[in-house]
Design a binder for these strands. Structure first.
Lengths: 202, 202
DNA sequence: TGTACATCAGTGAACGCGCGTTCACTGATGTAC
DNA sequence: TGTACATCAGTGAACGCGCGTTCACTGATGTAC
């Protein structure tokens, strides 16, 4: 056995992380395999030792966010999915709809950076995207008291508000308007994470 | 003067409308000029008689929505921007977050179909995108009574909810989850268009 | 009214480049002895 | 402990295709006379 078993895995992970950042910055089509491999310190040809195709890499890159960069991000925000507390919903809203997150192109959630790319990607990639949303909704839902019979509605709406606010904010050329949208979305998302929210009533 | 003055303009409009539909379906990069021209009943070479570049066409296509397909769409929804009435906010929410709109890939609002494409496009295209949002926010804002001091916040949030709900719904592979998101976003957006909304309070 | 002409929208072949993918080869490394 | 070997991660040249853009040409049409 040449090369340690870990070596292959490490290289693979390095390629995925490099790709994730590049895709986030430039989108699926504007990133070349050459570019990814070069930035990962490798050469073009080796790519197919690790991945079936560029699409497969994209899928891995989107998928890697949840337990990779996203985990770091959650930790910084004080969120621990395995020890959920009610206040973590607010922490998520604060972090997700923050200026920092908006400006952090490289570390941004793929739901913000790549929605139309994923909408046209293969089912694997879309499944990864869905996992991201599911995790977010799960957090919002379970941070609310079980007695709140609207909690799923609130959770789904809060997630839509987080993503919608950020997608718009990121695309608007006017910094003022972008900030207005972000701030309004933040405020409304905050209300939606509160235990007894009047506006979400059936 | 060969050809009537109107002829040139008609051809140009035909190219833009064909392009708008194709971009909506496949995204900026997955549409070729060949494809657009062919579908418009013309040949490749003529394209540059009408547009400077593919990017310029994209900008025109996004820009055309507001007064083109979008106007038809508003009319169908009973919305008249030049004779705004309070109930039109609800009509907008109903139409925008409808199943019909979700399934209408060709006629869909570009804010839903092309957000990441526009985020990486040139300033002209982004300005067109911003006009779409501005118009939507304007409608929500002015449909609310002037005394409501939170009306701009509500309007911005309603717009973010409309776009966020639809972007997510369109990308999720699970039809059930997509429907849950759409329905929750619809409900919350509805609340946000009401005259006295508690949850949007400062 | 009819005809020659000038204009320019439209044609289609060609260019040039970039990129995803393939492939024969190399050489670093762990293992057997 | 040292050395020959087998493996396979990594290399880099080449392939083939597609697409944005250019360009010399064509021919339909409105106008002048």
């Amino acid at each position: 056995m040449p090369y340690s078993a870990a070596h292959r895995e490490k290289t693979r992970a390095k390629i995925i992380e490099t790709a994730r950042i590049l895709f986030n910055k430039n989108g699926f089509q504007n990133v070349t395999i050459d570019q990814v491999m070069q930035e990962a310190g490798l050469t073009r040809g080796g790519f197919y030792n690790h991945f079936k195709s560029k699409e497969a890499l994209f899928s891995e890159a989107v998928s890697s966010f949840l337990m990779g960069r996203g985990a770091v991000w959650r930790k910084e925000a004080g969120i621990d999915m395995s020890d959920l507390k009610p206040e973590m919903a607010q922490q998520m809203v604060d972090a997700y709809l923050s200026k920092d997150h908006l400006g952090d192109i490289e570390g941004q959630c793929p739901m913000i950076a790549l929605p139309s790319d994923v909408a046209r990607a293969d089912p694997d990639t879309q499944a990864s995207f869905q996992h991201l949303l599911t995790a977010m909704v799960w957090l919002f839902e379970n941070a609310l008291p079980a007695e709140n019979e609207n909690r799923r509605h609130q959770a789904l709406s809060a997630a839509a508000m987080c993503v919608g606010g950020m997608v718009l904010s990121r695309t608007l050329p006017s910094a003022e308007l972008a900030e207005e949208v972000r701030s309004a979305a933040h405020q409304t998302a905050t209300e939606l994470t509160k235990a007894h929210n009047v506006s979400a009533g059936t």
